[in-house]
Design a protein around this nucleic acid. Sequence first.
DNA 1: TAATTTTATTCAGTAAAACTTAAGAATTTT
DNA 2: AAAATTCTTAAGTTTTACTGAATAAAATTA
Lengths: 225, 225
Amino acid sequence: MKLLLVEDSESLRNSLKIGLGNLGFTVDATGDGAEGLTMATMGSYDLMILDLMLPSVDGLTVLKTIRRKKIELKVLILSARGETEDRIEGLISGADDYLAKPFSFDELHVRLQTLSRRGGLVIDENIIEVNDFILNTQLFTLSFHGKNINLTPNEYKLIECIFKQKKLVFSPEKLSEYLAGQYDSMSKNTIEAHLSSARKKAKAAGGILPIINKRGFGYMVDQTL
Amino acid sequence: MKLLLVEDSESLRNSLKIGLGNLGFTVDATGDGAEGLTMATMGSYDLMILDLMLPSVDGLTVLKTIRRKKIELKVLILSARGETEDRIEGLISGADDYLAKPFSFDELHVRLQTLSRRGGLVIDENIIEVNDFILNTQLFTLSFHGKNINLTPNEYKLIECIFKQKKLVFSPEKLSEYLAGQYDSMSKNTIEAHLSSARKKAKAAGGILPIINKRGFGYMVDQTL
DNA sequence: TAATTTTATTCAGTAAAACTTAAGAATTTT
DNA sequence: AAAATTCTTAAGTTTTACTGAATAAAATTA
């Protein structure tokens, strides 16, 4: 699933690139309208995120050109000017969706999902979503609201194991076996320490890791949220 | 057994999600008609619970689209408008069943069972039902009318032991052995205390724990109810 | 119905499970 | 080999559960 990101602001561009990467998109990015246009023409992208405010060539012009050239591409417009005027003109010009700045990463995520579903595209089967946490089992990353959470291998494995089967309770023994392999094991406390560390990191990213303990039974995904 | 829940009201959606989860369904939920439609198309669901009143796309439209696309899916319609008019139009449009709001969780449960039986689907072999109590031996949960009852490990084990064999009387000694293992035991009174606590919790959830004492022999499922 | 026995409940002390933090060991990277 | 990261263990803390004694409530029997 290839995505082209055309966004002036370098900081936003970079953070979006990482966040969208975690969502399973292959992201190319540029801050220049003209360059974005040639990239859209040359590369075979499925989706495009297009800022209206751009140097060299204006976003609307880029969009109009793309549509004129009949390039098959879902375009999501991004704009700092939240006015209706822009919205309408943009959509008329052939945008598939519109998002006004400032926006949350989750909002963008939902829009992209809708866009790609509408087009019959599958984003990625390696993504597990729980609450607003996104686990990428191919990149081995966990993110929250587009923000990366840096996990150690064992922390990652724990979360993967639990996230993969949302309706199962994993006893510490099971988890230990999962982490250490069949012929080795680690203490219950080690599991606890890893989980604690992972929870701390999730908290630092602004979220609460949706893994709860069922005292006496084990750990599972928090279904109540 | 995958179930798709499309319901506008967030509170109802969440409580249904938990309740249906306890019944052994794997539940995905959304409040948006368009999203529900794409989910139904993409994911391989066995059952769908569909509210008629929805934002973006109307429930009936969703249903008609699903039938037109020949998606194999049992659909149960939910509606706040209890009118016959709707009922008929909905059923004609291809719904498999219809439930008018407000409804009890048990009513919904029965309908779903009927639907899944008709379709040759097995809900879950990890569910033990006694009266209106539902014990999920995979999630280690007990619920009553869709309401969760939080049990401690020993309380859970007691109920599991007794529920699993509805026609057997378990002496306190048997139960003690079941809880503590072969080489340890607990006093008769301890068993009584756990049971008492569990009964209290069940009562707080609005029900009466269907476990009775056969004086001089032990405990068993209450068959009279 | 009063006395007796059995079962239920409550409560408080004790025990155990889980969480956190920190520090040293093991591993990997540079 | 040094540095950095990660893993494991231990210890302290907090939370939750278990247990048994005391008491209350039922059921049985006399």
